[in-house]
Design a protein around this nucleic acid. Structure first.
Lengths: 150, 150
DNA sequence: CAGTATCCCTCAAGATACTG
DNA sequence: CAGTATCTTGAGGGATACTG
């Protein structure tokens, strides 16, 4: 009875998102896809994950509408996996994780490959959050406004 | 032989972050902490997770420096779990997941409790990404600049 | 190269009982 | 109320062999 409970019917969007991309591999596959990877072998080599696992995860992501499959652009008979618009909107999440990791999970002196802007070549600055009036938003000043009940 | 491999020595910060908060419960506990929850029972009730699991996850988060334990503010003999500065910096990630879920994982007509600014009461707008020159950043225009090798 | 098919193991997660 | 201790189950993950 240790059936893992689905969070997809949870009222909280964070929970639902985690249900879809909250496992060990999904966001790493997506990261690689942002990096330009499209082929099974590329993902496999990058992630070092077992092929059966990768196969299953790719299928899940396609089912979730995050990746699309397309025939390979070279002549080969295989597939390519491309981010959909829905998938691309996860960029914020991946970048957020990247920046948090950069800030807190590296020792002094460890080198980190920076994410840069293609045009200027300069590093992407840290994400900043704003209110709709344009003021800087601190976590303490945001809250989820739940439905008032009768 | 099916030992789960640690990502903490991975050169990619995204991978390291996922190693720390990339499981089913961590970010949901953190979400609740942002929501003001501090007590074991609050988390347990909110998440509906087994107590032993919650206990283990809380300990992991404390070990990771994301939560601090403090004596309860009421007289009781128990603990409170509070976000550290490091933990608070995950707000971007949680908000990113929230917004992605809001945009893609709800059916038309399903109600979503909005996240609002405490001052104005208005919804928090979607996160926008910028280059260091202040231009809007699209995923296609960002890439990880890996070390050039000799 | 791109997967699928097996086999096996570990651990996350659930249920529940117990302690201070 | 706040946990710890046990037990059980099954999904996730690893290795490898196999197929087109």
């Amino acid at each position: 009875m240790a059936k893992r409970k689905s969070l997809m019917s949870d009222p909280c969007p964070v929970a639902r998102s985690i249900d879809v991309v909250g496992d060990r591999w999904a966001l790493l596959i997506i990261r690689d896809a942002f990096d330009g990877m499209r082929r099974f072998g590329e993902f496999q080599k990058s992630l070092g994950v077992a092929k059966n696992i990768l196969s299953a995860r790719l299928r899940d992501l396609v089912d979730a509408g995050i990746l699309d499959v397309a025939p390979a652009s070279d002549g080969s008979a295989y597939q390519e996996y491309i981010l959909t618009a829905k998938g691309k909107e996860l960029f914020t999440v991946v970048l957020g994780l990247r920046q948090w990791g950069e800030g807190h999970l590296f020792k002094k002196g460890e080198s980190i490959a920076p994410m840069v802007d293609r045009d200027s070549g300069k590093p992407i600055p840290k994400i900043t959050l704003h209110t709709c009036e344009g003021k800087l938003l601190k976590p303490e000043n945001a809250f989820v406004k739940r439905k008032t009940r009768a």
